[in-house]
Design a binder for these strands. Structure first.
Lengths: 214, 214
DNA sequence: ATTTTTTTAGGTCTTTCTACCGAAGTTAGC
DNA sequence: GCTAACTTCGGTAGAAAGACCTAAAAAAAT
């Protein structure tokens, strides 16, 4: 009896690669492969009785991102396992995934053997997170004991967004109907909260958090 | 007679995928696959007589990025064709690649068929750039007629890199053994060249061009 | 209901940035 | 060889940013 898999990745070529790796194994039957998470969500809705064992998914996808897709999957089909294969290894993302009950995470620069091991482990009911991911996660958790999660308030996000959009303090003050002193306070607090030295640091943070587009 | 290929990509899994795609074709013989561009550079130096037809490479790689690798390849081995397979589709990057005589560019979300077509086309001595790439390129070139290609000098790149790394003018001056006036001149010229207003704009540009890491 | 956080704003002072100016030696392109 | 671009440095001056401080009303959390 073969396991039934579904693969989602918007990089078609990667999808092809994964497919040929899995097809060369005898245990797996790839039911469906798609470059769009929303297809999968619809498929699950239409075919509730289909026996699916594992869904392998990327994180960044155009229509429906991997995290949301995972949420949708797990909401209605707790028995379906999910494995994320991605090139992003931010702590925030890993946090997000763990909270959403993902069963495993393997970076795209992992070896083929590791991927297969991850699939096997997960199908046996265990979790699989690759060493790199665990390291990043732990290291960050340990070093951030005091810092805790740096959370910006709504107003702070507004200000840092405008700063990263190259507006001057006065312009930001005008736009938000604030005193320029207030905006300066925000900038100061932002820098100290985020532990950066100047606008360059704030801009990088805004980009990382996707407050502005690249 | 098979064609000899070399593949470079730091995403091991993608590499495996590419390999299995190419191995399923009969015309190609993958001599070497590596996740590090510098290996390839060394290999070419050690084996100057090896007959290599095509090198397929990613752009963003840890040790030696695709653009630099391409430059090294083309400097000593004009007969070797190069195909870039990447997920980045910025105009600047495409510009860079064309200037460095890359023979083709296919995005990672392309179909397997397109990849094979690209390889065939290039091996026949023509260039192959996928439609998406050509579109992005043309659209941007047309809208940027006046801007022209903004080229930064080596020194300018050094300065903008340090600016984006949150160093102050004085610190940059000290590091580069320049007067702070000089550094200020550079910053001013950079802003006017790149048409940005301040450090935030410079930082975003530095990130886009990957002068610094995210 | 009380405490904490957020939002707002002011002052002072130093440093840095940005905008102008000019200029000279070096390198590279034509 | 000439010209253009690059690299370097200087001055002046004003705007903005960044380092300190305090503080109070509003909102959120406990």
């Amino acid at each position: 009896m073969k396991y039934n898999l579904i693969i989602v990745d918007d990089h078609k070529m990667f999808l092809d690669g994964l497919l040929s790796i899995l097809n060369s194994e005898n245990d797996y039957n790839v039911l469906l492969s798609s470059k769009d998470g929303s297809h999968i969500a619809k498929y699950l809705e239409i075919n509730p009785d289909e026996k699916i064992d594992l869904i392998i998914t990327d994180i960044s996808m155009p229509q429906l991102d991997g995290i949301s897709l995972n949420k949708i999957i797990k909401e209605k089909n707790q028995h379906i396992k999910t494995l994320v294969v991605s090139m992003h290894s931010d702590v925030e993302m890993i946090d997000d995934l763990i909270e959403n009950d993902v069963d495993g995470y393997v970076p795209k620069n992992a070896e083929k053997e590791e991927l297969l091991k991850a699939i096997q482990t997960i199908l046996q009911g265990e979790k699989y997170f690759s060493k790199e991911i665990k390291d990043i996660y732990l290291q960050n958790k340990l070093s951030n004991k005091k810092k805790e999660s740096v959370k910006l308030t709504q107003r702070e996000v507004e200000v840092i967004t405008l700063i990263a959009q190259e507006f001057t303090t006065q312009e930001i003050a005008d736009q938000l109907f604030l005193s320029k002193h207030t905006v300066e306070s925000y900038r100061k607090n932002l820098m100290s909260k985020l532990n950066v030295r100047n606008v360059a640091g704030l801009t990088k943070y805004a980009l990382k958090m996707k407050y502005i587009e690249h």
